[in-house]
Amino acid sequence: MSIRTTEIIVGAFVLACGLALAFLAVRVSGVDLEGNRDAIMLSARFDEVGGLSSRAKVSMAGVTIGRVIDIDIDTEFGEAIVTMAIDGRLSKLSLDTGARILTEGVLGGKYVGLIPGADEEYLVSGDVIVDTQGAILLENLIGEFVTGAGSK
């Protein structure tokens, strides 16, 4: 009799632990349980990604629509190649969609922002976004400001 209750309680304890782990995995670390089955894989070339991390979010109009999967370097041209997985529902991203690397707040992390285009044709998995603008580095801005002020 008492053994039964013990077993039930221990079972509930293990279950609670499982729930806690699921909470941590989904709510905190953002593991996508649905996987990337229908994701559209796009890549974009940037001259500068300064501070963008893999797993950074990709957003459009302020809504998160995907994640950065990989950041690599083009050994020939010295550009960064950022691979992103975009929600499969966005099958109608026009060919001239632009990508920018933006900063969240003053101290926030970097993320990729997509700007809708107007082309009639759509991007499909594996395409490359051409219209890009790399990260703006604070150091460069300050540098430009200083030299610009000096030359005037």
């Binding site: 995995a25 905190v28 670390s29 979010k57």
Partner: peptide, 15 residues
């Protein structure tokens, strides 16, 4: 608050 965690916390590296 929650999105910040989602962006930064990683399943293996942190948890």
């Amino acid at each position: 608050f929650w999105a910040g965690m989602l962006d930064t916390v990683e399943l293996w590296e942190d948890i």
